[in-house]
Each structure stands twice: as structure tokens, then as C-alpha cells.
Nucleic acid binder design. Structure first.
Length: 112
DNA sequence: AGCATGACGCCTA
DNA sequence: ATAGGCGCCATGC
């Protein structure tokens, strides 16, 4: 157990905590989360952290999309269409092209 | 140590 | 508006 791994785990926990505060009906992005955590160049690591989430985690990871409103984490929610269904059930609206309407649904906690 | 991979995002044409 | 190129950085082999 090296310190690098510990830090990665702590980062992972911080990501989950922030994801848990995303309001129902809203979405945020990997980059937005990274910035909020003071690590603006770690958008990829945010995705990595979510990929490592265990089944029983309560964090609503389906509310995290990429900066274009594309559901890039869709594959982690079982059958195709599941992630979108979860979001629509919460009132998230989609554009005709299948992307989330970011202009109206983006949630940004800002730097803390 | 080097190379590939990825739930990313900015810049450019 | 959008597709490609490229920078970024943790992980695994």
C-alpha cells in the first residue's frame, strides 16, 4: 500500500462525495468535478474513479456526463439505454441528437 | 523504464 | 457545428 495509492483512494472518495451532491434533475461533467476538487487537469481521473465504483455505492454516477453532454459512461449501467432512462426518470431532458441539454441541466458547484 | 489504454477536454481547421 | 489532433495523467503489463 503505497502513498500514491492512498492519494488515489482519497481522490476517489472526494469524487464520490461531490457526485452525491449533484441535484436530482441535473448533471455535471468530469472536468467540472475535477475543477471543483482543485485538480483541473484530472478529468480523466474522475472518470477512472467512477469506473472503480462498487455496486453498492450510493453515488448517482449516472448524473456525470462529458462536457458535450454525451453519456460516455453509459456502458457501466448494464443494457444500452439504461443511463439515459435513469436520467429521464429524474426529469433530465435530451436534445434531438441524443445529448443532454447542458445549457439547462449543467450543475456546477464552483471552486470551493 | 517504456508503451498502451481510457466514463476527458481544449484548440484548431 | 463538428471532427481530428494533441495534452493530460493514473494504471497495468
Amino acid at each position: 500500500m503505497h502513498s500514491e495509492v492512498r492519494n488515489a483512494k482519497r481522490f476517489q472518495q472526494e469524487v464520490y462525495a461531490l457526485v452525491r451532491s449533484i441535484p436530482v434533475g441535473k448533471v455535471t461533467t468530469y472536468g467540472t468535478i475535477a475543477r471543483a476538487l482543485g485538480a483541473p487537469r484530472h478529468a480523466r481521473q474522475v472518470g477512472q474513479a467512477l469506473a472503480g465504483m462498487s455496486e453498492d455505492d450510493d453515488a448517482p454516477a449516472h448524473r456525470v456526463v462529458n462536457c458535450s453532454g454525451v453519456l460516455t459512461g453509459e456502458h457501466a449501467f448494464g443494457p444500452p439505454g439504461t443511463m439515459r432512462a435513469l436520467l429521464e426518470a429524474e426529469g433530465v431532458t435530451f436534445r434531438e441528437d441524443g445529448r443532454v441539454d447542458m445549457a439547462r441541466r449543467l450543475w456546477d458547484p464552483g471552486p470551493e
